[in-house]
């Protein structure tokens, strides 16, 4: 039997210290003027900020609101401003903050719905605007696939890092340009535009250019690098934006190579399936 391995440090029941959590509270109806509530939380080794919030909700104030789902840095729901930096609550251990007081605020650069719940609608609108999906000219094949598009490992590596985005919004919260220019697409959407532009199966580069290379696109990036520092998945949006600028510069001088979308991979006609490997499930779409 395989023993479960914790990536968050070994949890114990021993209380290491009491930490004061100062939480910014806001509710359009009941708390129209934001205020700070303080909660004393007994912190144990391995306890995350998300665990602390659960403790507060269960023991101290059941009206406190925040958003979470997976508890393991995958869903991107629990992004919040922790001690002045955008982080995932589930991915941040209280003791690693090395502080006796922890400030919790909703993500900046977004409107707040309630307490620590940001309104991420603008993030998804911007994300949608760059058409973050495979665009090809062979619409018939896309609508009714007859196989898989060919892609080498090298071609996969060109965009794989940027495909790890979990849409948590931390990069947008960290970006100084998003803070002043509300129409700036921001690191999240621009990185996803680059991710699909780099995909060998895609040929929608020209369909994304009006947004990504528009007045409020990549050229507004100051390369502060705050997005890459905040990203919990190592996506490095600042890098993606600089690569996009490089491609734009190449295109201006006619040096950007034309892209032809990858063809269908040849069907496997020979070989023998290993024993015990079942058939693929039938298509549902």
């Amino acid at each position: 039997m395989i023993e479960p391995v914790s990536t968050q440090g070994e949890k114990t029941d021993e209380i290491v210290k009491n930490v004061k959590f100062k939480v910014l509270r806001f509710d359009r109806d009941t708390i129209p003027s934001p205020r700070v509530d303080s909660f004393d939380v007994p912190v144990k080794k391995g306890m995350t900020v998300l665990d602390a919030l659960q403790y507060i909700k269960e023991n101290l104030d059941s009206t406190l609101s925040w958003r979470f789902s997976c508890r393991m840095g995958v869903c991107g729901s629990c992004g919040m401003f922790i001690n002045g930096f955008p982080r995932l609550a589930c991915n941040t251990q209280v003791l690693e903050l090395e502080a006796d007081v922890v400030d919790l605020k909703p993500l900046p650069n977004f409107d707040t719905i309630k307490d620590l719940v940001p309104d991420l609608a603008v993030l998804f609108e911007k994300h949608r605007s760059v058409r973050p999906f495979t665009l090809r000219k062979d619409i018939a094949e896309l609508d009714n696939p007859s196989g898989e598009f060919f892609q080498t490992t090298d071609e996969l590596q060109r965009y794989l890092q940027f495909a790890y985005c979990i849409k948590c919004g931390l990069c947008m919260a960290a970006c100084p340009t998003v803070a002043t220019d509300r129409r700036y697409l921001g690191p999240q959407a621009l990185t996803q535009a680059h991710r699909y532009n780099m995909d060998s199966r895609d040929e929608g580069r020209d369909e994304r250019k009006d947004e990504a290379l528009g007045t409020h696109g990549v050229f507004r990036c100051h390369f502060a690098g705050a997005c890459s520092e905040a990203c919990p998945k190592g996506v490095d949006p600042a890098f993606a934006i600089q690569l996009m600028k490089r491609d734009a510069l190449k295109a201006s001088f006619g040096l950007l190579r034309k892209k032809k979308a990858a063809p269908l991979a040849p069907k496997v006609t020979s070989g023998k399936r290993m024993e015990g490997v079942p058939d693929a499930p039938k298509r549902t779409v």
Partner: peptide
């Protein structure tokens, strides 16, 4: 992949 802004 040229736009007015990329030219500017």
């Amino acid at each position: 992949m040229r736009t007015r802004e990329s030219t500017l």
